[in-house]
Every structure is written in structure tokens, then in C-alpha cells.
Simulated scan of single mutants.
Amino acid sequence: MIVALLNQKGGVGKTTLALHLAGRWAREGKRTIVIDADPQGSALDWSEQRAREGLPRLFGVIGLPRDTLHREAPEIARDADHVVIDGPPRVAALMRSALLAADVALVPAQPSPFDGWASSEMLRLIDEARIFRPELLARFVLNRCATGTVIARETAQALASHEPPVLASRIGQRVIFADAARSGRLVSETVNGAVAAREIAALAAELERLA
């Protein structure tokens, strides 16, 4: 399965979700590769920090911020159970290529009307990609979600009948994600990351059922 995390809006947590999904699947014994398609290279930076900390390698991270991604990712996927693409913000050509490579397009969004409005361009790109890849699945995932807030509940309700719909799994707004990233770790490798790790596990399982 090739999962592309895409949203032209920056700061929605694409890299965090990409790395944690890959880490979850790797710990389940699945061969997993992350493709860093963001020219900023945040996933590669995380991988390098992990190596500096002397932590074991869980999965490979490949830098591939090119609009030939739709040709190269399927070749990479031949040697993996799952490929996770960490997409770029605001680079339409790269996002189009990632969509043409993906089995599932996952659009992280925070529970905010601003994120909803900013997603309109992403949805247009998904519609375009489906002309060539009608089997492409697309879903929103609520990320950095403050539990129990009115806006989170209203956003989930608004997206329930939306196309693409929102996944049942949600990822909370937790400082532990940033703390773990600074040392090249995943939340499952930290002392206080159990709740966050369970949310990631639920998201990974839902994506596998979907695909």
C-alpha cells in the first residue's frame, strides 16, 4: 500500500503522521519505507537525528522531491509492504505526482474552518488525479485535535458527509510528538507516549482496513 500524506497548507502535521505510521507498521514487522517528497526534507532530518542519537533504524527514508514520483514510487513499493509519502506544501506538480503514485491520499487537517477552506485546492487535485486513477482512495484525518472541544466535534460532523470523508481515528494535540521528534524518536519510544501511540496504532489499523 502506498499512502500519500498531502495538504498544500503547511503545519498540519504531515511529516509527524508519516513517520509515526511508518514506525507503527515497521514495529508490526512490515517492510516500510518513507519517501520524503518535501524539498524541506524534514523526514530526512528526523532520520539523521535518529542516527546521531544511536537509535536503531526502524525503516528507510528516501529523499525524492521530484515530479517523477508517480513512476519511481511503485518501483520502490515492490520491495515493501507499505510506502508512506510525506508530501510537500504548495508544490502542485509534486502533489500531482504523489497522487498518481498513491493508493490512499490522506489529507491531514486541524479542526479549524481555516484548514477546511485551505483544503479546496487539494480536493481539486484529487479530482484531477482520479481521472487517471479512478481507484484512488482519499480521506481526511483530523490531526492536532483538542479532545472534547466543540470545534473538533463540529468539524468531524461536517466532514462525515463530505467527499472525501473523514476517518474515525483522530490524533490529539500532544506536546509529546514534538518532544519525541527533536531526538529522532517516535512517541512509542518515550515514557509518556502511550496514549499518542495508541492513537497512531488505531489510525494505522483503519488505513489497512480501508485499503
Rank of each mutant, 00 (worst) to 15 (best):
R57H: 14
R57L: 12
L58T: 00
L58Y: 08
L58I: 01
G60N: 06
G60P: 06
V61L: 02
V61P: 00
I62A: 08
P65M: 07
R66I: 12
D67T: 05
D67N: 12
D67P: 10
D67A: 08
D67E: 03
L69V: 01
H70E: 00
R71Q: 07
A73K: 05
P74M: 02
P74A: 03
E75R: 15
E75C: 08
E75V: 07
E75M: 08
I76Q: 13
I76G: 11
A77M: 02
R78N: 10
D79I: 05
D79M: 13
H82Y: 13
H82S: 09
H82P: 03
V83E: 05
V83N: 15
I85H: 01
I85N: 02
D86A: 04
D86M: 04
D86L: 04
D86N: 03
G87V: 04
A93F: 05
A93K: 11
A93M: 08
L94I: 06
M95N: 09
R96E: 00
R96S: 06
R96D: 00
S97Y: 07
L99N: 06
L99G: 04
L100R: 05
L100F: 07
A102C: 03
A102Q: 00
D103M: 03
V104R: 06
A105C: 10
A105M: 06
L106W: 03
P108L: 08
P108S: 08
A109N: 15
P111Y: 10
S112W: 06
D115W: 11
D115E: 04
D115T: 10
G116T: 03
G116Y: 14
W117G: 09
S120I: 07
E121D: 11
E121S: 15
R124N: 14
L125H: 05
L125N: 01
I126P: 01
I126Q: 00
D127R: 15
D127Q: 13
D127S: 14
E128M: 02
E128Q: 01
R130A: 06
I131K: 15
R133T: 00
R133E: 02
P134Y: 15
E135I: 14
L136C: 03
L136Q: 01
L137W: 14
L137I: 05
L137P: 10
R139E: 06
V141Y: 13
L142W: 07
L142A: 10
R144N: 07
R144V: 02
R144G: 11
T147R: 13
T149M: 15
V150W: 15
V150M: 15
A152Y: 09
A152R: 07
R153M: 12
R153D: 04
T155N: 03
Q157D: 14
Q157I: 13
A158N: 13
A158Y: 12
A160D: 11
H162A: 08
H162W: 11
H162K: 08
H162N: 05
E163P: 13
P164M: 03
L167R: 13
A168D: 13
S169K: 10
S169W: 07
R170E: 09
I171D: 05
G172C: 11
Q173T: 08
V175C: 12
I176Y: 02
I176G: 02
I176H: 03
A178F: 09
A178Y: 12
A178K: 06
D179A: 14
A180I: 06
A180M: 06
A180Y: 10
A181E: 02
A181D: 04
A181Y: 05
R182S: 10
S183F: 14
G184P: 02
R185N: 05
R185Q: 12
L186G: 04
